[in-house]
């Protein structure tokens, strides 16, 4: 317990932890402020203004149509055979007023039920990034500066030290993620109340958002554990960060290009971000437009649905592989 307390304190004292947290929260705050400023509440005055704008646009369209029909009739009278006008000028008719609904002229407004879920994906991704960087640096810097060796002189149980460090990291990140999620929910509820609508928030909708938030938090914890494990395996922060860049460049861009060239189906199914998205958003539907299924509505692409259960399998496999390897290496390799 004393080691756990010390590691928790070390995590909080670290400069990178503080800076990464501040930076992540600043990005999220910027998004929230941007959403707040770019939306507004729809009241009677906004509706009246939208109706006037719609009416004006319709009137202008009617005028332009009348002018065009007059030109068409004039050209027909002069025997003009060009393609500029239809053969029968009576087909030129003004649009109905319904084609200009007032809703389209309303300013942007934030509807909590419709839009909040998407923002949770962004929070999950940013927390995961912070978790990965802080996690890899937390143990990588220990190896790099000799701190791990010093700690092992005090507590010679290698795997216990490594896992206690991981537990402290995950506790710290969990506290950050839960606080951020609560602040995010609160901020966007406030934005919806003052700059939009909170209508339709049933118990089911709340439950769905809560589960999305929970999956985002779990994603951040998994990313932190993966970063921690990779940096511990390589005994350097750069191992985790370099590995992430390598996977992105070679494993994702390179693989994407290769699969495109070979005409493979559902390229997205080979991309890690797809699984991250499927994890947070519950499912992702991939479409292959190379294969059409004929239907009364025309060409329907073949689809592949990836669910959060698929993603969870991948995340668990990655965790077992990386953390298992890190524990094995910690136990077996000499420390110099």
């Amino acid at each position: 317990m004393s080691l756990y307390r010390a590691e928790l304190r070390r995590l909080v004292l670290r400069r990178l932890t503080r800076w990464a947290t501040v930076l992540g929260l600043a990005v999220l705050a910027t998004v929230a402020v941007g959403v707040f400023l770019s939306n507004q509440k729809i009241d009677d005055a906004a509706w009246a203004k939208a109706e006037v704008a719609a009416e004006q646009d319709w009137q202008q369209q009617v005028r332009q149509t009348e002018e065009f029909r007059a030109e068409c009739e004039q050209a027909a009278a002069q025997g003009d055979q060009s393609d500029r006008f239809p053969p029968d000028c009576s087909h030129i008719s003004p649009p109905p007023p319904d084609a200009f609904p007032a809703e389209q002229y309303l300013p942007s407004t934030f509807e909590f039920r419709a839009s909040f879920g998407q923002t949770l994906t962004a929070v999950g991704a940013i927390l995961a990034l912070v978790g990965f960087v802080v996690g890899s640096s937390f143990v990588g810097a220990e190896w790099n500066t000799g701190g791990m060796m010093t700690m092992l002189l005090w507590r010679p149980k290698r795997v216990t030290v490594l896992l206690t460090k991981l537990a402290a990291l995950l506790t710290g990140l969990l506290a950050l993620a839960v606080t951020t999620m609560l602040l995010w929910f609160g901020s966007f509820w406030l934005i919806a109340t003052t700059r939009g609508s909170t209508e339709g928030m049933t118990a089911g909708a709340w439950q769905s958002f809560a589960l999305t938030g929970l999956r985002g938090t779990v994603l951040a914890l998994v990313a932190a554990a993966l970063g921690f494990g990779l940096a511990s395996l390589g005994r350097h922060t750069a191992m985790a960060l370099g590995g992430a860049v390598g996977v992105t460049v070679v494993g994702q861009f390179g693989l994407g290009v290769l699969l495109s060239l070979t005409g493979a189906k559902f390229i997205g199914a080979w991309m890690l971000p797809t699984y991250v998205q499927a994890w947070v958003e519950k499912e992702v539907v991939l479409r292959d437009f190379q294969v059409c299924r004929v239907s009364p509505y025309g060409c329907e692409p073949e689809t592949l649905t990836l669910t959060w259960q698929h993603s969870s399998g991948l995340l668990v496999a990655g965790l077992v592989l990386v953390l298992g390897g890190a524990c094995w290496a910690m136990r077996r390799r000499d420390i110099s």
Partner: peptide, 11 residues
Amino acid sequence: DTLSLLATAGQ
């Protein structure tokens, strides 16, 4: 800080 962390870890 350095010594304090070690002292905490080592009770």
